[in-house]
Amino acid sequence: MVKIAVAAPGQVAREITEVLVATGKHEVITLARRDLVPEEIVEGTTPLKVDFHNKDDLAKALRGVHTVLSFVVAQNDPEATAQKTLIDASIAAGVKRFAPSEWFVARFTHLKWNDSKLLARDYLEEVNKNGKVLEYCLFQPGLFTDYHANENINKHLKTNDFLPIDFANRRLLAPGSLEPRFTATTIQDVGNIVAKAIEYEGEWPKIGGIAGETLSLAQELAIGEKIRGKKFDVELLDLDSLRRGEWNGSWVKPLDHPSVQHLDEETRAAFSRAAFSGFLLALAEGDMVVSDEWNRIFPDYKFTGVEEFVSNFWVGRP
């Protein structure tokens, strides 16, 4: 049994925390910049209000903690100040393991709102350059398979319309061709792997890919048409236009992520088009595929595939 600190407990964090608590093996505290309302508190955890810019405050909260899992929202921490302070406080408190706020893919060439993740990576490299001071792992599961549903099916994670395939309306947007590939992993599988990683006695890999399934848009389309029973409308978008910042698709899903909900409708629509363009360009350049370090460490773990998930959700629905 170890003590775990979950920093900035948003949707993804709470789903993973539920899994950790369910093991019954660990003490879990959550660190937030404000007092959490009851529905934000995972039963079985201890919430603490902290200042993420105050190293001493954080170090005090982290006394006795073995592992820190950070979920600081990149857009809210553009200079990675909160994450760097959390890293410094973890070292000061004697924390053994640290997971920075990754939980996505490895490269952000076209996903600039994630650039602060790169700053946190660089800082971890810097503090360990003369020898390991803090063991860490970049947990990278790709996209959440759960986004294939068109309604909220999880306790905390909300449906995010960040997929170029629309199962409800039987349509697909593709960057130039159907060849680009991406990795998708269910949030339950991510939580299970993190729980196993907590108990793993070996050293954590610095890059921690969690690959539920990696498939092409062509395979994704075949699954959609098989399960939904009809042909999908497919649009192959011009990559040069996307690179010039020109949206040339006939539709785009408005983003519903908490980080953009405060924006007015026009600004949110513009951001959605820009984000979707960036996502498609990342797809085209292979940036949405992650590695499989944790799959190889736990070879007997069975992941939920995309077709299995889609079938379980969509079969029988209009």
Rank of each mutant, 00 (worst) to 15 (best):
L237Q: 06
R243A: 10
R181A: 10
G212H: 02
F139G: 08
Y123H: 11
K231E: 15
L255P: 00
N154F: 07
F52R: 10
L172A: 00
V234Y: 14
K230D: 14
V105L: 05
V2Q: 07
A99P: 01
R268V: 01
K84M: 03
V72L: 12
W204A: 07
R296H: 11
L173P: 02
L239D: 01
V127M: 00
D233W: 04
N130V: 09
L119N: 05
E235A: 13
E135H: 07
I198N: 07
S259E: 12
P9Q: 03
L134Q: 09
R33T: 15
F182W: 13
D35K: 15
T214C: 09
L221P: 03
L217N: 03
P164W: 03
Q219I: 12
G24Q: 05
R107H: 11
T214K: 12
W204M: 06
W251E: 13
E126C: 00
L242Q: 06
R228I: 08
F167E: 06
V133H: 08
E102Y: 05
E43H: 15
V73L: 08
D256L: 07
K129A: 13
A168D: 14
K49E: 13
S291L: 13
E203R: 13
N128I: 03
E135G: 09
V190L: 13
L221S: 10
E246W: 10
G305D: 13
F167V: 04
H156P: 10
W204I: 06
V190I: 12
A8V: 07
I227N: 04
Y200V: 09
R14N: 10
A174M: 04
H110V: 03
D51C: 02
A195D: 09
A80N: 05
L221G: 05
K84P: 00
A275L: 12
L143G: 07
F167Q: 09
A7F: 05
L111I: 14
V190R: 03
T30S: 12
R228N: 12
E179P: 01
K55G: 01
R244L: 12
T46K: 15
A106T: 11
E40W: 06
P78C: 03
E151R: 13
Q261Y: 04
D77C: 06
T46Q: 11
G24P: 07
T145D: 03
R97D: 02
A274Q: 14
F271N: 05
V19Y: 09
L263T: 04
A270N: 13
T45E: 05
I29H: 09
L62V: 05
I198H: 07
D238F: 02
R273S: 04
G202P: 00
L221R: 07
H262A: 15
R34W: 02
I198W: 05
Y147F: 14
A218Y: 08
V194S: 06
K231R: 14
Y301E: 06
R228C: 15
F182H: 10
M1H: 14
K230L: 09
T109R: 12
K25G: 10
W294K: 04
S291Y: 06
T67M: 00
I29K: 09
L217C: 02
A93M: 00
P78L: 08
L163M: 08
I16D: 10
Y123C: 02
E151Y: 08
Y123S: 00
V6S: 14
S116G: 05
L239C: 09
A284H: 07
E308F: 09
L255V: 12
